[in-house]
Every structure is written in C-alpha cells, then in structure tokens.
Design a protein around this nucleic acid. Structure first.
Lengths: 150, 150
DNA sequence: GCAAATTTGTCCTTTTTTGACTATTGTTAT
DNA sequence: ATAACAATAGTCAAAAAAGGACAAATTTGC
C-alpha cells in the first residue's frame, strides 16, 4: 500500500520530470491541501526523499508568498563520479594538509578554477581553523556548493 | 507565487537595468496604483531590497511633485579595495547579514562569479562562524585572494 | 514484539500586507 | 507674506500568510 509519503514523493517527481529545467516551485500549504494532510508532512517527505545526498536541492521562503523550490541536480555524471571517488578516499580524518592537497587535485582535474582553488585554500588556511581542525567539514561544505552547480 | 513585493522589486530592477545611468525616478503613489497596493508597500520593498548594503541609494521628496529616486551603485575593483581596507580596520562592525549582502553586491557587479558567490556564502554561513562571529575577517581573507588575481 | 518509518499536532519564526497616523512640500486665496 | 489646503512621502505596528522544528502518536515491516 503506497503510503501518503510515497504518493507525495511520486507526485513531486512527476512534476519535476515534466519541468524543462528540473526545477519546481510550489507551496507547502497548497500541496498539503491537495493531499489532505498536515503541512508538516511535506517537510517529512522533503527531508527523507529530496536530500542533497539524493541529488536534490531544496530552498524555501516563509511569509506571504512563501514557497518551496525543489531542484533536481542533473549533474555532469563524470564530475559527480570524480568528486565522489575523491571524497570517499578521504572521508575519515582529514587534516589541513590533506585538505589542501585535495583542493589542488580538484583544480588539476579541472573541476574548479584557479580562483576557486585559491579561495578554498585561503579559507582552509585561515587562522579560524588552526585550532579547531575541522578542515574536513569546511571542505565538504564547500564541495557541496560545487556539486550544486548544474 | 511571486509575492507582490517580489513583483515590485523585479519591476524596479527592470527599469533600473534599462536606465543608462542606473538611476530611476518615480512616484510612490503612482507605483502603488500600478500594483494596486497601499503606498507603504513601496516603502517596504525599498527598505528590504534596495538597501545601502545591497548597493542602492534611495532618496525622496514629499509634497506636490514628490518623488523617489533610486540609484544602483556598481562596485569596481578599486572600490572593493577601499572597502576591504575599511573592513579590516573596523573588524567587528560587520555582521553576517552585512557580509552576505556584500557578496551579493560583488556578484551583481560581476566581480565574482555565481559559483564564487555561492562558495563564499557557504563559508560565511557555515556553523564555524556562528559563535565566533568574525565574518568580516573571513570575508576580507577571501576577498584578498580574489583581488590579487588579474 | 520491536524498531523503523510515517503521520499528526503544536508552537515558533520569518516575511508580507495593510492601515492609521504623521511629516513635509507645493499651491492658492487673502 | 501668510494661512489654509492639497499632494506627496514616511513610520510604525498589527494582522495575515506563509514555512520550520520537533516530538508524540500511530502504522508497518521484519
């Protein structure tokens, strides 16, 4: 028995597929009314089926005229594969030097520009990260942006 | 969807883009009539979307023949250098929102790309800076990299 | 039967819209 | 010149219109 969440998921995917630019803008309230459910059900569906990991980008805005924008990231397959492979290599503990080397490799693979390379390194080198040593997290944060690029 | 405020914003930006000197003079009442809204809605749009932080200058005059003049101030490299110098001096005076607005300006003035814009915002938005709150320093750090480039 | 997934409800935050009241400037009649 | 009046724009706060977070309740799949 197809659950409500499944049906909402299917509905959104159908609309996305029909959208020329893989982007969909809708209203939570409206969608909830269509499926006769509470609005927070929509959040549940979005947070379980339209995550970044699954290749979706969800943005929203509150207030009058508020909306939810869902984008399917039609990524250049090769790029995704490359970055994923590179990522999975160093997903555990990454220190600063490894993070910097990784950025260099991204540039050498032409996945980022020279400017982006320098920008990322400047961030990683900044004093903020010297003690905290959360270079890996910052790196992933920046990589997500690159993955979002259609 | 697109709220009234968004539509008014878009309308003004369209007129601004079409204006040779990036300046626009209009009347609040007239604009309100065009969009069939209360005049103060115009003030709302101006104060949320055409702020100094976002690079706009708004002047006005009341009374008969009153008007509102909106000017877009484009950034160039020299100005950014100046701003950076100011920034690095008055470090703690810049909060996150101001930093984000500035990045938006950089992009609209074509000094950085869309990707760089997103990258920088991701960094500024990252949880690392939430408590430390030295957004200005990070911003300057990133700007230096971008400006030393040709 | 239990754990995971789903569904619902409640309270909260953000953004927009509206309206009443105020302030300023230009125009006109005296 | 001045007083009234008309024509603008500004301020501010309340109400309305979204969406978010999170946890309790319920259902489903092993």
């Amino acid at each position: 028995m197809s659950s409500l969440a499944n049906r909402i998921e299917a509905y959104i995917k159908r609309l996305l597929a029909a959208s020329p630019n893989s982007t969909l803008v809708l209203q939570r309230k409206e969608l909830a009314e269509r499926f006769r459910c509470v609005p927070s059900q929509i959040n549940y569906v979005l947070s379980t089926r339209f995550t970044t990991e699954l290749g979706y980008l969800v943005e929203s805005r509150r207030g009058g005229g508020g909306f939810i924008r869902i984008r399917r990231l039609d990524l250049n397959r090769d790029k995704v594969v490359q970055i994923m492979e590179m990522l999975s290599e160093l997903n555990s503990e990454v220190n600063k030097d490894e993070a910097l080397d990784f950025v260099t490799r991204l540039m050498e693979s032409r996945l980022i520009t020279r400017r982006e390379n320098r920008l990322m390194k400047a961030v990683l080198n900044s004093e903020f990260f010297d003690d905290q040593a959360n270079h890996a997290e910052m790196l992933v944060c920046m990589l997500k942006v690159l993955l979002e690029d259609s």
